[in-house]
Design a binder for these strands. Structure first.
Lengths: 179, 179
DNA sequence: TATGCATACCTCGCATTCGATGTACTGCGC
DNA sequence: GCGCAGTACATCGAATGCGAGGTATGCATA
């Protein structure tokens, strides 16, 4: 689906910013970060690497395989580093609203040098979480939590509220410490 | 992306189980349920409706439009109702692990008549949340929360833990009340 | 010695999504 | 009487994801 455009690429760029890696190792790190929620298929990762290579964001260098087949060690180019910082500094709307994508942004946000830029990104998430949200409607009228009788739907509201509260607390604390 | 296969279809089937709706109204309800996280494009919804129609899960009946163009009022067939219950009773792995998809399951879980079947689904989520998860590694060693120095990555752990705790509490309470 | 497992990469084809764009009608403000 | 927003549906092309399948090596275990 198109909804995840860029999430995988962001993860690749983010991990490679730290150090060069070959595809198989990259796959394991991405699996650790987001795999429990959404596993990454090899047939998704390798074409994504090729796209980034074609776009000049990543270069590969073939090395004899340590254990098995030869490895293609991947590194970011200067363009790749720029692109990572751009994607972190100006996340797409879905990067802010979708928790899975937001976590990917957070995982690499330290790569933005400027603490002001980091704070600006956190503030976008803060604004999003502070918007009133209604999950359920009766006709046009949004239902308040107490009005939802279905216990499973109450669960959705309970969990969403707890997450939101925890994240708001953390966001405010972190924004304060960023100055 | 293929990762979301079925999430949209589940939402369509779930809403239509309650009452017949035309596509435009369906879109508004889906937007209320999941749109703040992931908006649904019209060019995604209408083809999805056609797929379900072609599969015999949904039938459409054209009515003169109340305000504008003629409406296609959609209803579930008996097969459609069966399919909804099947998808609720046997959610795909991603329906359990991905919070967005899990919320969609929860939103319609009451449509499973059998409380045992409902409890079985909740237990699958419980099992998933009780598995130990590590987001970050140093080599092969999973890092504990205290060892993660990056404040943004600490945020991920803080938020994930808070969500998990709230949901575990709710799951145990709800499972107890289901008997 | 064979069988399986982990490493390491790749391609093909199908399904799904989405942005752009189009059609057509109604009601509102100006 | 003109434009604009909302209602209501639709198609097309490009991008993306994934399952199935393939290639190849080295190690352990039976």
């Amino acid at each position: 689906m198109r909804q995840n455009v860029g999430m995988l690429e962001l993860a690749i760029l983010g991990f490679l910013y730290d150090c060069s890696l070959h595809g198989y190792e990259l796959r394991k790190r991405i699996a650790a970060l987001t795999g429990h929620v959404r596993p990454v298929a090899e047939s998704t990762l390798y074409p994504a690497i090729k796209r980034l290579e074609k776009a000049g964001l990543v270069v590969r260098e073939t090395q004899p395989g340590a254990v098995a087949a030869p490895r293609h060690v991947l590194s970011l180019t200067a363009d790749g580093e720029r692109e990572l910082r751009r994607r972190l500094a100006e996340p797409a709307p879905a990067d802010i609203t979708d928790e899975n994508r937001w976590f990917t942004v957070l995982a690499f946000l330290r790569h933005l040098q400027d603490t002001d830029a980091q704070a600006a990104v956190l503030r976008r998430r803060l604004d999003f979480l502070q918007e009133p949200v209604s999950f359920f409607y009766e006709g046009d009228r949004p239902l308040r939590a107490e009005e939802v009788e279905d216990p499973f739907r109450q669960g959705i509201l309970t969990i969403a509220r707890a997450t939101s509260r925890a994240e708001l607390t953390w966001l405010r604390k972190t924004l304060a410490s960023l100055g």
